[in-house]
Amino acid sequence: MTVMNFVYGFIVLLAAFIFQTALTGVNRKVTARIQKRYGPRWYQQFLDIFKALRKGSITHGWVFDFGVIMALGGIMATVIFIPVAGFEAFPNMDNVFVISYLLAVGMLGMAMSAAGSGNPWASIGVSRALTNMVAYDVPLMIVIFTLIFAFDTASVSEIAAMQQGMGVLGWNAVRMPLGGIVAFIALFGMLGKKPFDSFIAPAEIASGPMVEYGGKHLGFMFILHELMTFIEVSLILSLFFGGGSSILVYAIKYAILYTLVNIISQVMPRFKIDQAVKFFYRVPLVFAIIQGLVVIFLGWGVSVWF
């Protein structure tokens, strides 16, 4: 654990932020194109974030600030652990459970500061966010469990490495098709994209937890949202779509995946939160269990099909 690790970590953090924010800008253009309009400049997302950081802000007490800082701190730590195309700031610290539970630190920090704001909208938003998490996370975890059992390792980079070299056939999404589908659907839940974004619904609960955030807290929330997206998409990418051998391949696959998710989500309605839980505990959960049983008992998914 030398200083270099921390420097690498900061570089990964910065790169992740810049890459993801640019990609979000592009995707805002893509969404606009879907709605037959031009959409903002590609760097609009940067502008929004820096404008928010520039503005003044209010605070409802020390827990309101501490929660935001803890959330961003936890998410930044998780980003540092994410292996990007084989490069890790801190070697073999990329255990799947560590990453998914550190994600929970971010969620908890945001929830704490939102509830601390004393606004009922925020608490309703948080309760929906946690219910949403229970919905998407269980099927996803079962599929990840099957991966760990199949490849006998829980480190993301090793799983990614095992899928490279055989082109598309090597991807886990191809080897374990049901698992791939579940992961892709769960990605929507994780990102809080359209079908499952009832916890930040602007019209319904005045953007949920972010109701009281203004100025720099809002900026923090945007950065947090970008970094969480980076973590989630790269996690699914490395585990199921064979994470890139080089950084360029990784970036392209990442962009394609994120844009695909964004496009699909633009045309989806919004689930009520209990409909979301019911949906996740019907289709994806059954797929995940079938996939798990198939891999554990028949061992089909482990080796490449053809």
Binding site: M1, F6, G9, F10, L13, V68, I69, M70, L72, G73, G74, I75, M76, A77, T78, I80, F81, F90, M93, V98, L102, V105, F220
Partner: peptide
């Protein structure tokens, strides 16, 4: 321990 330290590192940057 390393998870805690990196968590602290992230927290520091945010602070």
């Amino acid at each position: 321990l390393r998870v805690f330290i990196v968590f602290g590192y992230g927290f520091l940057i945010a602070l």
